[in-house]
Design a protein around this nucleic acid. Structure first.
Lengths: 177, 177, 177, 177
DNA sequence: CATGAATGAGACTTCATTCAT
DNA sequence: CATGAATGAAGTCTCATTCAT
């Protein structure tokens, strides 16, 4: 709280005028991110008809998100490890974000399998793989920005060449020839 | 520190006979994990000749690790977000683990591309994707164990069916038909 | 201060237009209570000639006060324990209320002893006893209103039957046959 | 907590080695006081047969307590006003002390009325009166010790002459001739 | 070697108070 | 005159760490 207050140029006490607690601040941050993300999905992803197109659109959206707000999904993911109180409105929001993302992937995969566009792999497994891919890219992007907190950055830094086309190609066709 | 001491059945103060600080304890834990992992890689992965076989062996090893010590890679990954002091011996070790893992993948991929076994994709990108995949599986495994701290677990729980063959198939051939 | 402002339907800051500080607000509240009490004493108590009648009138007045504004004397009494800053205008006022009450009792008792209406007991002691009696009744009345904060209320609740006649009889003749 | 720590010559943090919270510290203090008081009552009061003697013994005990530990009953009484959280182990203890004291008085009075030693006055009322008397004496004693926090002390200071005989006489026979 | 006891530094939070508008 | 917004000071509590025994 002290660090955030200082970064905002206000006093610690001032933060409590806007958020009841640290918990509530984090929850509100998550809530806004989720709402914004859901709107974008509705606008950019769900408008497509073909599951393959939906999948590609989602990958493009996620990559754009990652480049713009590097850290959101990542923090959401990690927050789970740091906060583990019961009855945490923050954790509940975090959970809602990840659940939403997973179910989105799930529904796309399942529809794609029905239509014969995707192979028959356990869709939950695919969703897990994709979530991991985005998480890792996110991490790379975040390291690129803040080289002090860097782990992956020493090796990779999410360069421009890692376009959505590259990601789509990898996810659709794997590494084998 | 109190929790660890209790779990070990010793007094908090006793821990400082063996480790200079919490930081150093974590660093030592990472160090041992890395050494052990490197030994296994030498024994199980590097013995293979073909890059494809090496890759498959590595996937099998990582999955076994995940099922056995669910939490190590994950914690390593997340630790980066929690600890961000400069001059942290722990962070340096964490970084060493991830760097080792990445360079292992890198070298396998590059060799495989030379031999024509893998497609020409930026090997750093592939390493990032693979790291993400393992991370996500790890998370699923960890959620499966402790359903209270669960995020992904509400959907996925790393079932037995997610065999190394499934992971290999996905990574080698992607989701497209 | 926030609670009081809300109860008054004004902003916290507005309170500082009328009172320099929380301290001063409390002091003014005490001052008004004391003035009002002194007026009532002049009107209802001092008009009597006989000390016994004065004493009875005072008991009746105090009981009425207790039933009407349960909490004033009590708060005055307890405030002493909570606020203990030196140089407190509030404490000085509180002290003035209790001092006034004590000296009133004192003068009645002393006159009553001169006239042979009361036994020869240290009048200061009697004043202390009477103050305690009123305090305890006040507490009972306050508990009766707010049973959540109740301590005595679990046993006693200041019922209607505890009339001024009962109090007068007890104070005049004690418990012995 | 800071004040108590300083008075004990230890660090604030050290207090939390012995008491889980401020609340628990207060509760433990109350608990010990109550146990000690109950033991004394069993030893000095309940051994008597006649209710009058019991009453006198209790008055003597309370006065001795007041002179020795000035502040306990008083603080117990006032604590009720300061702490008003639900689920407060402290408040529960405080309540237990006052309830114990009240029920002791009640039982003595009722027995005394049966045996014809006391007049027929509502015993709950008498208990309330007596509690008030002790409270007021306690306050006087406390003021006498700490003249800075003094309210009553400006008038009264619980002199030696206020013996238990004086209190007994007053409570048994009142102020009238 | 092991530890009970102690603690400094810092975390989150509250509240009376101020001040520009 | 009234107030929304801001805050310093203080309060309760935690935790990694130290040290005498």
């Amino acid at each position: 709280m002290a660090d955030i207050a200082e970064a905002c140029g206000i006093a610690k006490a001032t933060m409590y005028e806007y958020f009841r607690s640290k918990e509530e601040l984090a929850a509100e941050w998550s809530r806004r991110f989720r709402r914004e993300y859901e709107e974008r999905v509705a606008r950019d992803v769900l408008v497509h008809d073909s599951p393959s197109e939906k999948m590609k659109a989602m990958i493009r959206l996620d990559l754009k998100q990652i480049r713009t707000f590097s850290g959101h999904f990542l923090t959401a993911f990690e927050a789970n490890a740091v906060f583990s109180n019961e009855e945490s409105s923050f954790l509940r929001e975090i959970s809602a974000i990840l659940t939403y993302h997973n179910e989105l992937i799930l529904s796309i995969i399942e529809e794609g399998q029905k239509r014969g566009e995707f192979r028959k792999i356990d869709p939950k497994f695919v969703a897990t793989m994709l979530a991991g891919a985005f998480l890792s890219l996110q991490r790379a992007a975040s390291d690129a920005k803040d080289s002090e907190k860097c782990v992956f950055g020493q090796l990779f830094s999410f360069p421009e060449e890692w376009s959505s086309d590259l990601v789509i190609d990898y996810i659709f066709h794997g590494i084998a020839c």
